[in-house]
């Protein structure tokens, strides 16, 4: 369980989080999405007790991260973004060390289990410094899972993993997410769509939107998008299509195709088709796309274009 209320974090004069509030229940997998510098890592570092917020409150696994930090840390598994590991240590010794810090009764057994879970049993006796990037990521994950935490916080867990491992990772996360709480950050939108129960999109330290992936898509899709490819004078056709009522955001792509959107309930496709046949164009392709989470993301986190004020000369 995670409950965040009005969380604010300043790094010196720069405000990284602006009064963030959200909640993650037990048995929920939450996806944290946002462009670089949005504040994902900062939020996670506060939730794991690495650093305190400037103001606001965060309850993790039933404890306040400020006042009962140790109790929180006992119950949280954390994979930091940079995957810090001791390169000069042997894999299983490192995991045993982490297990001992967490007072696990059977460290050896837990180490073996965790290694098995991330498919790294073979490299148990090797040095961490000799592992590949993806393997390091898996050891970082094993370290986060070793004490079967109530709350799992993963900062970009799938970075650097091969496709097979990504599938494995998602399986592990879903498995854990059944009874526990998982908060993960990612830049891969399809991933969030596939495994998260809820997606929180943040930008510049503020929550932009928070919903299930399905709802997000339904709520934000303005309409359908049509891609059209014809043989003939595309510019002329474009001008004609623009006249059709209900056509929005018409543009021609560099590959010669045309693209436009229409609102649901105002299907303009028959009329467009008529224009094409009457005008003597040969239609090569007409396909309809739904807006993806990707489009929604780009739309929501788009930089506000600020027109610079004219400089006055003195």
């Amino acid at each position: 369980m995670i409950r965040v209320t009005d969380l604010t974090k300043d790094y010196g004069p720069r405000r990284a989080l602006h009064s963030l509030s959200f909640e993650a229940r037990q048995g929920e997998i939450i996806g944290f999405l946002g462009p670089n510098g949005a504040g994902k890592t900062t939020t996670m570092r506060i939730l794991t007790g690495y650093m305190p917020p400037t103001s606001g409150e965060a309850i993790v696994a039933g404890y306040n991260v400020m006042e009962e930090s140790i109790e929180v840390r006992k119950r949280v598994g954390y994979l930091p973004e940079t995957v810090p590991l001791y390169n000069e240590m042997v894999v299983q010794d490192f995991l045993k060390f982490m297990a001992e810090l967490r007072h696990i009764p059977n460290p050896e057994e837990s180490v073996a289990d965790a290694l098995n879970m991330v498919g790294m049993t073979e490299r148990a006796k090797g040095y961490i410094g000799n592992l590949s990037k993806g393997m390091r990521q898996r050891i970082g994950l094993a370290q986060a899972l070793i004490h079967r935490p109530e709350v799992l916080i993963l900062d970009e867990p799938s970075i650097g993993l091969d496709p097979g491992q990504v599938v494995e990772l998602r399986k592990i996360i879903r498995e854990i997410g059944r009874e526990r709480t998982v908060l993960l950050s990612t830049h891969i939108l399809s991933e969030a769509q596939q495994i998260c129960d809820r997606v929180i999109i943040i930008n510049k330290g503020k929550i932009v939107v928070e919903d299930t992936p399905e709802n997000l898509q339904a709520r934000l899709v303005g309409g359908e998008r049509v891609v059209l490819r014809v043989r003939g004078d595309a510019a002329e056709l474009s001008a004609k299509i623009e006249q059709v009522k209900g056509v929005q955001r018409l543009k021609s792509n560099p590959d010669g195709s045309l693209e436009f959107e229409y609102l649901p309930g105002h299907d303009v496709r028959p009329e467009v088709a008529k224009i094409i046949t009457n005008g003597g164009y040969e239609m090569l392709e007409m396909k309809t796309l739904s807006l993806s989470l990707e489009d929604i993301f780009l739309e929501l986190t788009k930089e506000q274009v600020v027109t610079p004020k004219k400089k006055r000369r003195l």
């Binding site: 007790g49 690495y50 840390r73 930091p80 940079t82 001791y86 390169n87 810090l101 007072h103």
Partner: peptide, 11 residues
């Protein structure tokens, strides 16, 4: 190396 983050987020 950042390993302090591991120690400071462990109990």
């Amino acid at each position: 190396t950042g390993t302090l983050e591991l120690l400071l987020t462990a109990p």
